[in-house]
Structures are given as structure tokens and as C-alpha cells.
């Protein structure tokens, strides 16, 4: 594995419109080694941004480069794709394929053509996602969590330097989420991982940096601690619900945890990353993500 000499991914002033809707409105960001969390309410443009970086969609304006290649040119796009692993939000599967065949098929399309080396690589990634023993099973016979792992294995095959994961833990039970979290942490040690999620605890535990996207614009770009600090002095607890709070909920102790502008003399709390996110995005953040 060789190290690049520059930033993994850089996007500058990316604008993308769908008709009258502006999905991305001048987005700029840079990615390097480690896991970067991408937070935002529904319709914020997260998936669109991921697809732009993954070279699936060409922006109307702006620049995107990865590993020193201009991702908006043909050769550059190809160079990016050679280093890309992409797990979409709702990956499809060929149900009649076995897990091995599915990942092998993806490996071929990634131009891993030496059969023995490719098969070794497929076995490696299946073992990496914990599907070593299920590799001969047809996908139609696998559970939802196992299918998600197959999709992740397909994204990992070829050892990509850039991994884009669009809500990979949706629908997984806590144990599976924990397994994925461990895996993402390992993967982030030596590559750029862009993780779109609604799970703020995933961001807190995994991400070295976090980007908050809202209405097609970057609202925050920094560390999780810095994101939490956005709510410093704006989180308090009280015995009654405050009417002017951005968010207010009754905790297990019976008191209300509230985010917003606290009254004088309020009993302030240490903010979490979720509080910072709520502060940035406001009520849209509390909408049902699905």
C-alpha cells in the first residue's frame, strides 16, 4: 500500500440543480485519511454529494478532484473509480448469486482480472465483513444484515483508497451496528472514509471529522468535539418543558433536557454532538429521517 502525496478528495464550489431545486449550493470540502461523518436532515443533499464525489453525477459547476485527478474528466473519473468503494443507501443484489459470486462479479468490474488473486481478494473481504462461512450461500437466503455486509464487502473489494458509505447501518440491529462500527474504525486507519449517517453516536465514536450539510450547503466542518461545542451554553435541564426550546424531551430521570436559548439561571449541561447538530440545523433535524 503506497501513500498519496496530497489530499484524497477535494470539492470546491460544487453546485448541482435538479430543475428548480438546488441540491448542492456551492459545497466545498476536503477529505483525508480517517472517517468523515456527513450529517444532515432529509433532503439536505447528502446522497447527492456522495454521488458527485463518487463520480456518479456531474455537478453543474465547481470542481471535484481525488488523488490528484480531476474527477470531472473522463480519465480522471476513471482514476477515481479505480480507487473507489461505494456502498449506496439501498444497494441492490442479484438474489441468485452466492455472496462469493456477487463480490467476485464486482471485483471483475473493478478490473481485478487475475482469477486466483481476485478470488483471494474476494475471500479476504468476505472474511473482513464476517461472511467467511456464508460465502457459498445464495443472497436470497441471507438476512438483511448479512446482505448489507455483502454490499460492504463488494465496496471493499480491491482495497479502495476512498470508501463512500451512504447510511450503511440503517436497519441493522445494535450488535450488527457495533460490528460495522468496529470495521469502519479499522478501515479509516489507512484510507479516506466518507460516512453519511443519521446516527450521531456513530459519528461521535468513529469520525475524526464531521460535516453538516443542510439545504445543499455546508453548515459545519470540523471535529465532533467542535460540533458538540456549537451547543455550548445552550443545553440545560429543568423540571418543566420550555416552550421556546429547539428541542425538549423528558429523560429517564423525569427532568427535561432542552436545547435552545436557556433562561437565566438555567442548569446548563455538557452538550453532545447531537445537541450541536440540533443547534445548527434546528427543527428539521428532528424530522423522521426515514
Amino acid at each position: 500500500m503506497t501513500l498519496a502525496t496530497d489530499t484524497a478528495v477535494r470539492a470546491d464550489g460544487v453546485v448541482l440543480r435538479y430543475g428548480r431545486t438546488t441540491a448542492l449550493d456551492g459545497v466545498s470540502l476536503s477529505l483525508g485519511t480517517g472517517v468523515t461523518g456527513l450529517l444532515g436532515p432529509n433532503g439536505a443533499g447528502k446522497t447527492t454529494l456522495l454521488r458527485v464525489i463518487a463520480t456518479a453525477v456531474r455537478p453543474d459547476s465547481g470542481t471535484v478532484s481525488a488523488f490528484g485527478h480531476d474527477a470531472l474528466t473522463g480519465p480522471g473519473r476513471l482514476a477515481v473509480r479505480r480507487r473507489l468503494g461505494y456502498l449506496p443507501q439501498d444497494p441492490g443484489f442479484h438474489p441468485s448469486f452466492t455472496a462469493f459470486e456477487f463480490v467476485d462479479y464486482v471485483a471483475i468490474l473493478k478490473e481485478l482480472t487475475v482469477r486466483s488473486a481476485r478470488h483471494a481478494e474476494v475471500r479476504r473481504v468476505l472474511a473482513q465483513v464476517g461472511l467467511d462461512e456464508q460465502r457459498g450461500k445464495r443472497i436470497r437466503a441471507l438476512s438483511g444484515g448479512m446482505r448489507q455486509r455483502v454490499a460492504l464487502a463488494a465496496a471493499l473489494v480491491g482495497d479502495p483508497a476512498l470508501l463512500i458509505l451512504d447510511e450503511p447501518t440503517v436497519g441493522l440491529d445494535p450488535e450488527q451496528r457495533m460490528r460495522f462500527r468496529e470495521l469502519f474504525a479499522d478501515l479509516g486507519e489507512d484510507r479516506a472514509v466518507l460516512l453519511s449517517t443519521h446516527q450521531t453516536e456513530d459519528v461521535m465514536s468513529l469520525c475524526r471529522t464531521v460535516v453538516v450539510l443542510d439545504e445543499g450547503r455546508v453548515r459545519f466542518d470540523g471535529t465532533p468535539v467542535e460540533l458538540a461545542a456549537q451547543a455550548a451554553g445552550r443545553v440545560w435541564t429543568s423540571e418543566t418543558r420550555a416552550t421556546g426550546a429547539l428541542a425538549s424531551w423528558r429523560t429517564g430521570t423525569g427532568s427535561y433536557r432542552q436545547v435552545g436559548d436557556p433562561p437565566l439561571g438555567a442548569d446548563l449541561l455538557e452538550p453532545t454532538i447531537e445537541d450541536g447538530y440540533l443547534t445548527l440545523v434546528g427543527l428539521r433535524a428532528t424530522e423522521d429521517p426515514r
Binding site: 503506497t2 501513500l3 484524497a8 483471494a120 482495497d159 484510507r191 471529522t209
Partner: peptide, 25 residues
Amino acid sequence: MTMVVDAPRDAAPVAAAVSRRQAML
């Protein structure tokens, strides 16, 4: 926005520099 980034390794696929013809086959 700005962000401090590290430079990730420029990883190559397992079987590097293979031709499209081979992939097609």
C-alpha cells in the same frame, strides 16, 4: 470551509494495471 487533511495512500487494485481486454474476458 477548511479542513486539515492527511494524505491517504494511493492504493492500487490487487491486480494492478490490467487491461480492459482481460477484464472483459
